[in-house]
Amino acid sequence: MADWPDYELIDFGTDGLGRGRRLERFGTLVLDRPCPAADGVTKQRPDAWAAAVARYDGARATDGVWKPAPKKWAPAAACRVPIGQGLTLGLTPTPAGQIGIFPEQFINWRWMYDRLNRYERPLRVLNLFGYTGGSTLAAAAAGAQVTHVDASKPSVQLARDNAERSGMAAAPIRWIVEDAAAYCQRELKRASFYDAVILDPPSYGHGPKGEAWRLERDLPRLLELCRDLTAASRCLFLATCHTPGIGPAELSAYLSDAIVGDCSAPPASGRLWLSTPEGRRLESGVFARWPS
């Protein structure tokens, strides 16, 4: 991306085994990772793939391995994100092939920062399924008071590490390890309300006490809770999704059903894309956000 010097989608396409992959640069590191959205696509820069520092392979996303091992290349690796005065996100390779940074969210981080920065007072922002904190830090950089919620204690620690890397260890952020719906229900009982909600729910998951999450079953109720938590002073609502079968229209409908009765206009929605320097686009999820 021309406006994000530390990140580049170099190429994407099918490898010799017929599997979609993507080649990306984070800071100075080039990584080769699986990418189902690139299945059946022809690579345009085949010679560039030899520059990869590490490659993730596996029959399934949960049983692969990084080669070489992350301890040889990941420690101290970080990616600078030009939001506000600048954020720094560390690379945290996982056994599932993730690295703790989701570059398709950059457009949302920038939109969120610009929106929140317009208010003279610091808004209260609730970030559900906050993972490694990119959205939390973008909101805090705009002056918001953020509550970061994730069911995974290690993920919340990674987000706190990213806050420290970004010089935001003292920012007004509350770090909560909890099931998203359970936390929202308790906040309603406490009459603890918010101005904005951000959420990037997974297709499936479990809370810290084994609470099962199924997006198509549980998202409508969670959005209703978020609606009630923001009823008095709603300023911003952002949802993103990577669940197969849920496109922009479906995600927008989820938000509309929950909040459109209280809003002056329906949410905007669309697809998230990553682009190579040559302009090739790789689909990377969907978004719905209000106001448009």
Rank of each mutant, 00 (worst) to 15 (best):
W213S: 03
P68Q: 02
A253D: 14
D47C: 05
P248N: 10
G261W: 04
D39I: 05
D195K: 04
M168F: 12
E211I: 13
T136M: 02
I101W: 10
D114I: 05
L225C: 01
M1C: 04
R33Q: 11
T276Q: 09
K189A: 10
L116P: 02
G84R: 00
Q145K: 14
S252T: 07
L126R: 06
Q85M: 08
T88W: 05
A170Y: 08
R234A: 11
P291S: 08
S256W: 03
C35P: 03
L128Q: 13
G90F: 13
S203P: 02
V65W: 00
F287Y: 15
L225H: 05
R227S: 14
L222P: 02
L272T: 11
D39Q: 12
L236G: 06
L126H: 05
L223E: 10
E164S: 10
C235Q: 14
G210H: 08
I83Q: 05
G205I: 08
V286P: 01
L274N: 06
A180Q: 15
S166N: 01
P267M: 07
A180V: 14
M1T: 08
R55Q: 14
L225R: 04
H148N: 09
A258P: 00
R124C: 07
Y131K: 01
R227D: 15
Y113I: 06
D15N: 12
A258R: 01
V149S: 01
P70R: 07
R45C: 09
F129N: 04
R234F: 01
D150E: 11
F129D: 04
A77S: 15
V81I: 15
G245K: 04
P46W: 10
R60Q: 15
T243G: 00
Y204Q: 11
D63V: 00
P248Y: 13
L116M: 09
A59G: 12
R165H: 13
I246F: 00
A38G: 10
A69V: 08
C35N: 08
G84A: 04
A144I: 12
I10H: 06
R160C: 13
E216S: 10
M112H: 03
D150R: 02
C263M: 04
F237Y: 12
I173Q: 00
L89I: 09
G205V: 13
R60E: 13
F193K: 13
L223P: 00
V53W: 06
A59C: 01
